[in-house]
Structures are given as structure tokens and as C-alpha cells.
């Protein structure tokens, strides 16, 4: 009995010595995933769940009597989609570069609009450790961003459409005497060939 026990014990130790160790568990750093975009030349990130889609800027029908950041309405998936100028709305200026090519479609309860983008970088994954609530942003960007991420020297504001809705910036689209109505698209001028709309 004891021999059998010792033989088993030897066998156990031999197999324990020759056995391959279990792989170490890799601790993945928690990341945040979203899309990297830009509005009025300001780099932003946005969660995929807040985005309906990104489309090429469709042909527009202008709406008289609206503010200058309302570019018009476009036909989209059998309906009408209001298109807003991100440069004029956020940057409070006309589009500095070439005519914007893409717009972000956002659907919130009672809120379905397209917002022109100055650039589209693609999907991005950022460490959650880099997220911060201190934003070097101002104006409507500061109102609509829920913190952001530092990527090197660059700050990426986390755009939250609920905050945009809550800010009330889109509450009144009627033209005011102080702000001219039209021409946000007409006044754009051609830029250099390599410009993303942020350097000119």
C-alpha cells in the first residue's frame, strides 16, 4: 500500500515537473471604442451608439428664414433630413475650407439631423485611463462634450448628442436680424489640395 502510494507520488511529481505551465492571464486594459471625427477643425470622438451613420453630403434644399447654420433639408432613406453646418454652429464661423463632403446623422428622441464634419478619421480605441473631465474647449464644444481623451498633445473631445440636445442650441432655427440667413455654402472658397479644413 505504501509502495503504491509512493509510486503514485513519484509519478505525480514527475508529471508535475514535466508539465507545461498554464498561460498567464492577460489583463486587458479597459478601452473606450468609438469614431474619430472632426467638426470645424476640432478633433472629436463619438460613441458608435450615439451615431446613426455617416453619409456623403447629399444634395440640399435650402430653407428660407432659418439661421445660417441650417444648410437645408436632404432626402434620406425616404424621408427629409435637416442638415446643419457644423462649422457655423460650433465654430460660429463659415466653413473655412472646402465644401464639406460628409455629414454625421444623429438620431435622438425628437431629434434627427445631419451635422457636417470637417474630417473623418475612422474607428478609434482609447484607454479609459486617459479619459479626463478637464477640457481645453470653449463655446458649444464645451457644452456638448462629456470630457475627452488626451492622445499625446492632442485633446479629443467626447461629443455627446444628448448634451447637444440639452444645450438648447438647436431650439430655435429661425433667422435673427443679427445673423444673416443664407450663404454658408455659397461663401465657401476653395482651399489647398491637402487641407482637411483645419489648417487654412
Amino acid at each position: 500500500m505504501s509502495q503504491a502510494f509512493s509510486a503514485l507520488s513519484d509519478l505525480q511529481s514527475r508529471y508535475a515537473h514535466a508539465a507545461v505551465a498554464l498561460p498567464a492571464a492577460v489583463v486587458e486594459e479597459p478601452t473606450w471604442r468609438g469614431a474619430s471625427i472632426g467638426i470645424a477643425g476640432v478633433p472629436l470622438v463619438m460613441a458608435h451608439r450615439d451615431m446613426e451613420t455617416i453619409i456623403a453630403l447629399p444634395p440640399l434644399t435650402r430653407i428660407p428664414g432659418t439661421r445660417n447654420w441650417v444648410l437645408g433639408v436632404a432626402a434620406y432613406q425616404g424621408g427629409l433630413l435637416p442638415i446643419l453646418c457644423g462649422d457655423t454652429l460650433f465654430g460660429e464661423r463659415l466653413a473655412p475650407g472646402r465644401r464639406r463632403e460628409y455629414c454625421l446623422v444623429v438620431r435622438q428622441p425628437g431629434f434627427h439631423v445631419g451635422l457636417t464634419l470637417s474630417h473623418v478619421h475612422g474607428n478609434i480605441a482609447l484607454p479609459l485611463a486617459q479619459r479626463t473631465a478637464n477640457m481645453p474647449l470653449a463655446g458649444l464644444f464645451a457644452d456638448c462634450c462629456d470630457g475627452g481623451f488626451w492622445q499625446g498633445e492632442r485633446f479629443l473631445g467626447l461629443l455627446d448628442c444628448t448634451l447637444l440636445t440639452a444645450s438648447g442650441a438647436l431650439a430655435d432655427t429661425s433667422a435673427s436680424p443679427a445673423a444673416p440667413v443664407e450663404d454658408s455654402l455659397l461663401r465657401v472658397k476653395p482651399s489647398c489640395s491637402f487641407c482637411w479644413g483645419c489648417c487654412c
Partner: peptide, 8 residues
Amino acid sequence: VVAINTRI
């Protein structure tokens, strides 16, 4: 844009 839309 395609990649973002695919992800969405």
C-alpha cells in the same frame, strides 16, 4: 466612413 458605419 464605411468602417465607422460597419461598426455602427
